[in-house]
Design a protein around this nucleic acid. Structure first.
Lengths: 229, 229
DNA sequence: AGCCGCGCTTGACAATGCTCAAGGCATAAT
DNA sequence: ATTATGCCTTGAGCATTGTCAAGCGCGGCT
């Protein structure tokens, strides 16, 4: 397969596999393939049989949960280097949500059956899978906590602080996606997000289009923790 | 250890281990122990080093996530036969939340180190772990979906339907815990829960103390799906 | 240039849910 | 019996958020 080399570099860049020796990676790579999808393409749909999982090589993937009445919630997004659906694929379950390309995206698709064989041969791969899943669980736990006890404004501020990647001082960065998508991620209406941004201006957060400037990260974080204390 | 026999029966009653042959269970049992805790006792606390995971043999366990300001959210509850914290224990991480005995509770405590050795010898145990974790993930996904796009009343109705364990007809059952705890589980104030119960009366749901009577399960469920359709 | 179409903002209003406060109804303690 | 305690309900007012609707600004298209 012509894509073997690119699959290898993809696998190596992933936390999940980074600690594994090359021979094993090669065997996994041989049974995986690189796929490219345009923005908006479905990767898998809620309820479908889970026979493979994926690694984001480039771009962003949205995880969406839909209800019969048409409403939908954005559960998370996955960035370059992250795996998704690994746990459910290993147990041959059904995907509990729909995955969609948020941008044009390059994926490595790994057949569960192939990895299962490798795990039997080398159980440490299994630990790596469990570790990745534990991280996903932790992420969901934090999200539930936020939904249950933070106001919209607080979630927006938290979201921005998470993007800042620094602990203090000032920050400048670009919003990774549409404000509509951000609003869905945070579980609020787009209009509410807009107003939250406006209110945050009073706390040293400037938003101009997709550009964000935070004057004092530590100060903003402190303000968050003081709220209702 | 005198508790070996009871550990064995505990392990056998758990989905996670039910498919494993006795010799393996015995080796796991030998390195586990049964613990009994009074209601309200801490099992582990958020941030502590995760070196073991647990099985609920009898009673209920609450998983709580606390914020520095004192507010806290109830993430889930675990019932007899369920495991918890298995993923994070396997990777020697930190418990992401606090576990507390909701009632008097009997637990099997399993040291991660012991199970890790067993997994290396028998990788299928690892698959069982991944399966359990995938279920927990699925549960969180459903919860996030509900928090993001259902109203309080809808979540209350969903909660009751989940307890009914039937698909149609009428149901009679007892609420498993305090209404205060239920409200926390659903992410609403206790007063809101009380009012939600009152409103549900119009849809054939009677609540008298901890006793619940639903006149028409299928009808209630249909009404839920029709909302905003 | 001029005209969409789209993403975003803003305003007004309604609904939802929270907080504070009071009261009812049990069971436990004195 | 009486009081206290805990759990739950109810009411009133308020804050937050969602919904509907209008309008702005910008890039693409003709």
């Amino acid at each position: 397969m012509a894509s073997d080399a690119s699959v290898m570099t993809a696998l190596r860049s992933v936390n999940l596999f980074s600690s594994l020796p090359d021979p094993i990676l090669e065997r996994i790579a041989a049974r995986s393939r690189i796929e490219k999808r345009p923005a908006g393409a479905l990767i898998f749909t809620q309820g479908a049989a889970a026979r493979a999982f994926f690694i984001v090589v480039e771009g962003w993937v949205k995880l969406i949960r839909a209800r019969p009445d048409g409403r939908q919630a954005l559960l998370t997004t996955f960035a370059r280097g992250e795996t998704f659906a690994e746990a459910v694929a290993m147990v041959d379950g059904q995907y509990p949500a729909t995955a969609m390309a948020a941008t044009e995206v390059t994926l490595a698709r790994i057949e569960a059956e192939a990895l299962r064989e490798e795990i039997c041969a080398r159980p440490e791969i299994g630990f790596a899978m469990i570790a990745a899943t534990a991280q996903h669980l932790h992420h969901m736990v934090r999200q539930i906590e936020q939904l249950k006890l933070q106001s919209g404004d607080e979630r927006v501020a938290d979201f921005l602080l998470g993007l800042a990647e620094k602990d203090s001082g000032a920050a400048d960065f670009t919003l990774p996606f549409d404000k509509r998508v951000i609003a869905n991620t945070l579980g609020i209406a787009q209009e509410t997000l807009s107003r939250a941004f406006a209110r945050l201006r009073a706390f040293g957060v400037e938003i101009d289009g997709a550009r964000v400037h935070i004057k004092d990260i530590a100060g903003l974080r402190a303000r968050l923790e003081r709220r209702t204390a």
